[in-house]
Design a protein around this nucleic acid. Sequence first.
DNA 1: ACAAAAGTGTTCCTCTTACACCCATGA
DNA 2: TCATGGGTGTAAGAGGAACACTTTTGT
Lengths: 248, 248
Amino acid sequence: MSIQMNQSLSVDCAVFGFNGKSLKVLLIERRYYAPDTRLDKLKLPGAMILDNETLPQAAYRVLEEATGLRDVYLKQMDIFSDPNRVSGEELEWINRYHGIRTERVVTVGYYALVKLDTRTVAYTTAKGAQWVDVDSIQRLAMDHKQILSAALAVLCREMLQSPVAFELLPRKFTIRALQNLYSAVLGIEIDNRNFRKKILASGFLTPTAEREQGVAHKPAQYYTFNKNAYKKALKAKLKLGFINNWRY
Amino acid sequence: MSIQMNQSLSVDCAVFGFNGKSLKVLLIERRYYAPDTRLDKLKLPGAMILDNETLPQAAYRVLEEATGLRDVYLKQMDIFSDPNRVSGEELEWINRYHGIRTERVVTVGYYALVKLDTRTVAYTTAKGAQWVDVDSIQRLAMDHKQILSAALAVLCREMLQSPVAFELLPRKFTIRALQNLYSAVLGIEIDNRNFRKKILASGFLTPTAEREQGVAHKPAQYYTFNKNAYKKALKAKLKLGFINNWRY
DNA sequence: ACAAAAGTGTTCCTCTTACACCCATGA
DNA sequence: TCATGGGTGTAAGAGGAACACTTTTGT
């Protein structure tokens, strides 16, 4: 038993997107995959840490390669450090793929939120990646299913406590779209009248001059997220009683 | 620029305790310290990861060595991965102290909450460790001041959202003690009547048969934390509307 | 005219806040 | 008897939950 020096450190990213109906996650097919093995093909995008980069830098690098996007919402969520989290055939695959020889990989899980516009979808599909419905995923390579589950849990928590939802929506969106997003991610029904009241009262939505076009019903108003209003509200909150926020 | 293989991974623990008045953190003086260097002496307890252990296992190992305690509240909080977070003299110290030769140490920060009873204080002081008022700490070895700040921020957040406060109190405690703890950690004043109403209404406190003794005022009732009641409440909550908890 | 989704108000109730005095004990 | 901190109640206001119908558009 000695201090661990021949290990590698990696990052894996659960990249989430929302298509208006359901929550998607970006999966890639691993290369160097021999069709006769029974290893799962699909995995989360990830990479080993390089000499001179921090973990967030590595995560941004992975994200940019996978989606072509910079300036994306990205957050660390958990570390997966079981010495046997990859072993056997899976460990062999890693060593072969990266041309290294390690006995253990500790990975840091990140989750990212992107706006699923046509350009991004085009980029990812050109790379052979897929946006898969999170509810339909049964198995993934290595322990990536576990990493994905952890990311989903964190996403739920964050959505209830900060306005990360807007990272998943286009710049202009309808209140219904926002509501559907909450509904889909959290798996709950939300009363439209109360939701609308609450979200409008917050002052974080700015109405635009535009409305939906070509829909067979009353066209909906488009809004944008007012980041400044949110920041101001945060600062104001800090001065007041924190203790308000207790929940049991 | 190559995949990082000669790095080390470590854990550092911010161990918090509460003496009834103020929040303390456990600091140790580093050994192999040459009095003529200008390196700071005090640091958080920490260790390198061994071959066959997970990060939480390493953290528990550190904690047991530092405090003699098992079954302690311990939680991962952040990763410090700047390639230069330890360098120069500090890096030399690490290599000398551990008898290794690494160019980079990524560390995972944990925070722990312990009950500051006489036995624990005796154990730690026998080991030459100190319980230091968190507010009085200006500098620490390496980037440990930064790690401590991160831990404090997480502690504040957690205290507002889950009943971790009880980890810092003895099994039997007065409501005042609980209130003082919140007050001290969060740095706010709390109305005693409202606090008492709220905490008692939660049903998480069970009164004991005991009261304070030998105090020059009306003796206070002792309570214990009812973990089962809390767990039941959590489960009930899951069925209801999450959306309640929104805060902006 | 009809189908489809957008948008709108009110009532009830719970929870939060603000606030001041009496009580039990040791010295 | 006094000093000390423990312990109690109420009223006003804010915010949350439940609930059904009208509006606008395309077909």
